[in-house]
């Protein structure tokens, strides 16, 4: 088990969402797009600049693009 930020996770890494520490607006938006705590997500594209693309494995693989600033406030842990 290793804690890190979503923004730091490499491509193809599978992680579990531990906490979402972003502002209220972003948090609500993530919730309504189906990203919740304990969801297992795969990082599809993360290039150290620009947004991060994730695939929510807990929600039928729905894909969400998340801006880097917000991804830096999402704590995740490694599952593989």
């Amino acid at each position: 088990m290793f804690e890190m930020l979503l923004a730091e996770a490499n491509n193809e890494k599978i992680v579990k969402v531990i906490a979402i520490e972003s502002g209220k607006g972003a948090k609500q938006r993530l919730l309504s797009l189906g990203l919740h705590i304990n969801d297992v997500v795969e990082v599809v594209s993360n290039t150290r600049f620009g947004p991060i693309l994730i695939k929510n494995l807990s929600k039928n693989n729905a894909r969400i693009a998340i801006g880097r600033g917000i991804a830096e406030k999402i704590q995740v842990e490694s599952v593989n």
């Binding site: 502002g23 607006g25 972003a26 938006r29 993530l30 797009l33 947004p51 693309l53 729905a62 894909r63 969400i64 693009a65 998340i66 801006g67 880097r68 600033g69 917000i70």
Partner: peptide
């Protein structure tokens, strides 16, 4: 700004 949160449909 708030930042990007966008669904990428298939």
């Amino acid at each position: 700004p708030l930042g990007l949160i966008l669904e990428i449909p298939p």
